[in-house]
Computed example of a mutant assay.
Amino acid sequence: MSALTPRIAFMLTLPPLLWAGNAVVGRALVGSVPPLALNAMRWWLALALLLPLGWRVLRAPGKIGARWLHLALLGLVGVGSYNALQYLAVQTSTPLNVTLIAASAPVWMLLTGLLFYGERPGARQIGGAALSLAGVALVISRGSLETLRQVTLVPGDLLMLLAIALWSVYSWMLARPPASMRGDDRPAWNWAEFLLVQVLFGTAWATLGAGVEAQVSPAAIIWSPGVVAALVYVAVGPSLIAYRAWGLGVSTVGPAIAAFFSNLTPVFAGVLSAALLGEAPSWYHAGAFALIAAGIVVSSLPRR
């Protein structure tokens, strides 16, 4: 893996900002759009926008077919599952609980690397995880330990826990692909073509989930200009732009370091929520940024 550069740091900072907006939008659409239907519509729209950029990959279906299992799993754990589970989680869980569980991403990244890829975390990674989690805890608790003591688990928390675990698998699959996706054996797909293949499989999974939802708990979509604008945002920002930036960052510095950047999501979410409510950022926002930034620096220091 390569060293962390300012360009890659920017690439890894952009997705948390866009995903923070995604969480805010998902919460705002509760009661207007069923969660799995929202996920499916999001990816269908993203697929339509991505198709003009990556359509050439469809001219060689044999290359996709030869790698269908890996690509189908990528589509399932990365595109089809994570946001579906998050949209489901905010139906029953509180923003505080969901953010706390999402903050465990570095731990899941380290565990996945250790258990399935033989990557032993170093002392700097463990120390960086502690600093980063401390920053997240600071911003979501608003500097109050009493707020953290009042957290209780609900079904949505378990869904979010599953989402984070699957996201760690997705990130490691990007960083450590099978032999058919490495070196000379990898098809000459550019970023749009590779993302299009993932979205194709992911949209199939998302559509299947939405179909099951429609049969089990049917609910009408309450259309409005705000709903349309929200769909456009989640299809372009958290989907196309964020996935492109995240894939580039993970493949460059590895999922363990990239995971620390994901902890910026609740910080950005706190800032966005404060902005939407007309409140100025508080001291704990600055403190959280400092702790999370320290965690990123510590975790990315080269080993002696």
Rank of each mutant, 00 (worst) to 15 (best):
P155E: 07
Q125M: 08
A89V: 01
M109N: 11
A123D: 00
L174G: 11
G122I: 01
N97D: 11
A105G: 03
R182S: 14
G118V: 07
V151A: 07
G183Q: 13
L133C: 06
A105Y: 04
G118A: 06
R186Y: 00
A165I: 09
R176Q: 13
P177E: 12
R142A: 13
N190K: 13
I164S: 07
W167E: 10
G127C: 03
L158E: 04
Y87E: 00
M109F: 08
V136F: 05
Q150L: 12
V199T: 13
R186V: 00
M181K: 04
I164V: 15
V197S: 00
R124A: 08
R182W: 04
V136P: 03
R149Y: 02
L96V: 05
D185R: 15
L148D: 02
L110D: 04
Q125V: 05
V98N: 05
L88Y: 01
Q125N: 02
L159R: 10
I140G: 00
A130D: 01
L110S: 00
N190E: 09
S93R: 03
F194M: 11
S132P: 08
M173F: 14
G127F: 03
T152N: 12
G135Q: 13
Y82I: 12
V197T: 04
L145F: 12
P187S: 05
V107N: 04
P95D: 08
L162V: 14
L196C: 00
T112V: 14
G183S: 12
V98K: 02
R142I: 00
Q150A: 15
V197H: 07
F116W: 15
A134N: 04
A137T: 07
N190H: 12
G113S: 06
A188H: 14
